[in-house]
Design a protein around this nucleic acid. Structure first.
Lengths: 259, 259
DNA sequence: ATCGAGTTTCCGTATTATGGAGAATAACTT
DNA sequence: AAGTTATTCTCCATAATACGGAAACTCGAT
């Protein structure tokens, strides 16, 4: 999928164009699943070949792009590192609060963000229980089928929700999963009303999860606690929801204030 | 830990300095756990304030850096996205082969690359077993203490191995871990001889792992299968090693051909 | 061996990033 | 609260830097 509307490279005034161009190239390679040849890139971004070549060379030297033996270009391991750190730093703000949640509730707690049209878990504090939920950090999942995802979606315009559902699709991991855009819309309404999302065995059978979006977050962010339905019942919810709400508010405050 | 030897910003000739500087700043923020203020950054990289400011502004506009309300700077979600794509693209080539390995052997399989002086896991296919190994994608670990790390080291010059061990250090996570450069050298010899690496409870007690480097890879890459010692025994090895070898060869071939 | 698409190097030009000086804003002090 | 200092941000003349046209080169195909 080369691109939809040839975003070229956004040139905001006051910006350093070499840098903007460099990231334009990265973006372009990212969209060109796998490798991209020099001329293929040149077709996408509208720049003369020597310029692109010089820029790419610089990126290769930095380890951000790697050059394949067939001279194609691909994203390099340097980006993996930076992205990983970026993710963990996002999660770092929330971690102490997750710890509190786990300590008070005894079930695993997560933070996730939206990346593109999916949720990606950026941090988790696992419960000490023998049987516990655990979600790999970095794992990506469909938004409509997770508590955190639905919590984030509830804060978006429906137009955007529709677009996300369209591009990412709406698979149903379990028989309880939401499968249609209408059902999703209705569910998001309920979430907005009550202020938190419930994942009722929608992601995995036997697992219930309560999730809440972090208000006014610079990036979309949500936290959740989850565990087996046997333990995570109504009385659990009664204890969990106020704690979640409190944690979300404090995380929000801390992100606002910088840190 | 501001930095060890103030790497400043590496200025390789023929490179675009704005871009090199921009990544220098990202690197600097990455090292400054969490946020970094403008002047804090200025102390690390040796550049005048206005220059840094302009560069950071550009990065903020690109979504690669986010500015906190207290004017501090932190890595942004754009990097999470790029890093994630970079990782999945590295892993994408290997994933189908990992799937095969998991299907045939029933234990988790991983791909990792070397980034700087550590290994970073770029993809994993987890086994279906209840008790299973799992390694977060993006996780970094010391090279001498992991199967994949040792497999990669075995393909390097000893001078380089020595340098990596010196900069990264040689901690011993378990009593079986390799703790001295001499032992490591000897172990690498054995690995070269037999063609694959064994992690014998060196990373985590109770876990054994067989790893093999991908030959002639554009970036250092290795794959592994790992699981509890009870299941991952000699008869497992007999089945696993040929499969690993085959997978490594096919991944190598596919990476050579580009795409 | 010849061709041609794609890639890389060269180098004079002027566009682009630069950083000193200073205004504006926030933080700290009395 | 008002004064003081530290830090961040804006301007703009300067020249250093990135630019891109043209040409050399590499590789795969005929």
């Amino acid at each position: 999928m080369s691109s939809k509307d040839t975003p070229a490279i956004r040139q905001s005034k006051g910006g350093v164009q070499s840098v903007e161009r460099a990231f334009g190239l990265l973006e372009c390679i990212a969209n060109s699943a796998g490798s991209a040849t020099l001329s293929h890139i040149a077709a996408d971004v509208n720049l003369p070949l020597p310029t692109i070549h010089r820029l790419l060379n610089t990126l290769v030297n930095l380890g951000v792009v790697r050059q394949l033996p067939d001279r194609g270009y691909a994203l390099g391991p340097g980006l993996v590192r930076l992205g990983d750190i970026a993710g963990s730093q996002l999660g770092a703000v929330a971690r102490p609060y997750l710890r509190e949640l786990v300590a008070e509730l005894g079930e695993s707690a997560n933070v996730a963000t939206m990346d593109g049209d999916m949720v990606v878990y950026v941090d988790q504090v696992a419960s000490e229980r023998q049987m516990r939920m655990f979600t790999e950090v970095g794992r990506r999942a469909h938004m409509h089928a997770t508590g955190v995802g639905k919590a984030i979606l509830a804060g978006l315009e429906f137009e955007q929700v529709r677009h996300i559902a369209a591009t990412a699709g709406m698979p149903t991991p379990t028989e309880y999963s939401i499968g249609t855009i209408e059902d999703l819309e209705a569910e998001l309404g309920r979430i907005r009303e009550r202020g938190y999302a419930i994942d009722e065995q929608e992601q995995e059978l036997g697992v219930r999860c309560f999730a809440m979006a972090i208000p006014d977050s610079p990036v979309p962010l949500a936290i959740s606690v989850s565990g087996p339905i046997s333990r995570v019942d109504q009385s659990f919810a009664d204890r969990a929801v106020p704690l979640l709400k409190d944690a979300a508010a404090r995380i929000s405050a801390e992100m606002q204030s910088g840190r």
